[in-house]
Nucleic acid binder design. Structure first.
Lengths: 232, 232
DNA sequence: CCCTTCCAGATTGTTAACAAAAATGTTGAC
DNA sequence: GTCAACATTTTTGTTAACAATCTGGAAGGG
């Protein structure tokens, strides 16, 4: 259906669209880490030539969302526990500051938008729509970066959020729903109250919580590991 | 000579090398903003096929170092004053924290490396080797990110540093030597003293100083501007 | 029975020719 | 003489065929 959908769009489908599509799929954990992304498969999935796919994969690789192995193809990235540490360290540096900025710059309309987003998160969570809940949970952090009003930062955050999805897919407990929407709700409360320090601290606690919920001693699920495991 | 040099390497020259080379040239302000990067020129500059060049340009575009205009070609990016604001806002978020991390993690050997680097900055500055001074000044921030020990952050910082070079090229005064090496020296002093707060504050002041030295009311120097300027 | 070696199939990487678009230069009419 | 339309040239974008590499399995030997 993806193929039909994409083919229906027809006309012009740029590599940016493909990148966006794959980003979404990774965030929703429909593409687990280590999944092979063969060129021919993607070609008739999106109904475009090999060149576009190749460029899209290169862009995704430059964003650390896929890994390119020479003569072997493209695979959805499998972050190591070290990389997971890195990502959370970076997010802990950035996102409290982003929350501060959001407090400063959020218009009433944007606050309403955030509240609405949280409502949808809440609904998806209670309706058991796990996939939507995961996606919305990630998108909340992206929305916050958008409210902060810095496109450069947004781009960085989009990468971090997506990589976090991969990390949770590898190291997270199965019942874990990424972020609890309650944490998000409290952050928006602080934004509404124009409490920059409070929002920053809540964001820090929130990220710390997510990180400690992970089991960073687990190992990767990529093909190369099977080799090293089964070699014994 | 670049062509001969690159051709001499021969054998295998990956797109990463090309990207790195262009990064360096941009940091040293040998490639001013708006410079056209025609494929054929790059082809015989690096002695590789058009495909490699194309991939390198795409990677550079994904890092906001070059702009790709459809059917027009690739140009060295010309950040707007808004984008300049964004970059400094992001750096002001990141680098104080990076400085803190560096204080925590720097080994004695790394501190010696930083001191050595500053010495070279000092020499280049006083010898009037402007190009070297600019490059070393930028590299100091990269080195600090390296000491902080987070590759993900290093990648982000490399992009920020390079974009800052472009920004200074557009909005900076001609006599401006990017960062004064004295600021860097004081930061390393704080690292040596294991004073995280001090290092972070100095870094913040340092970046703020650079930003206020810019004249962000200037306009771009790209081809499109000539049109609007000469139209009168 | 297991291991190594080799071959067929499939997939990726590269090259070259081709198509399309933009920039440039020229001609002709007003 | 100036402007506009047209033709040429250059540059970028795309496609398709070709080459190189890896995967998986089968055959052969230990």
């Amino acid at each position: 259906m993806d193929a039909a959908d994409a083919a229906a769009e027809a006309a012009e489908i740029g590599e940016e669209d493909i990148v966006e599509h794959i980003f979404e799929a990774v965030i929703e954990q429909r593409l687990p880490p280590g999944t092979k992304l063969s060129e021919s498969a993607l070609c008739d999935a999106f109904g475009v030539g090999r060149m576009r796919i190749r460029r899209a994969l290169l862009l995704l690789a430059s964003r650390q969302i896929v890994e390119l192995h020479a003569n072997r193809g493209a695979f959805v990235a499998s972050p190591t526990s070290e990389q997971a540490h890195e990502v959370f360290e970076a997010r802990l540096m950035l996102e409290p500051s982003i929350a501060r900025l959001a407090v400063t710059r959020a218009t009433d309309a944007e606050i309403a938008l955030l509240a609405d987003h949280i409502e949808r998160e809440h609904q998806a969570h209670h309706a058991g729509r796990r996939r939507d809940a995961i996606r919305l949970s990630g998108q909340f952090h992206g929305l916050l970066a958008q409210v902060a009003g810095n496109p450069t930062m947004m781009r960085i955050m989009k990468e971090m959020i997506t990589r976090t999805s991969l990390i949770i897919g590898i190291f997270g407990a199965q019942d874990m729903t990424d972020c609890r929407d309650h944490d998000h709700s409290r952050i928006v409360d602080r934004i509404r109250a124009r409490d920059a320090d409070g929002a920053a601290r809540l964001m820090q606690d929130h990220l710390q919580q997510i990180k400690t919920d992970l089991d960073l001693s687990n190992k990767v699920t990529t093909g190369l590991d099977l080799v090293s495991i089964l070699k014994r």
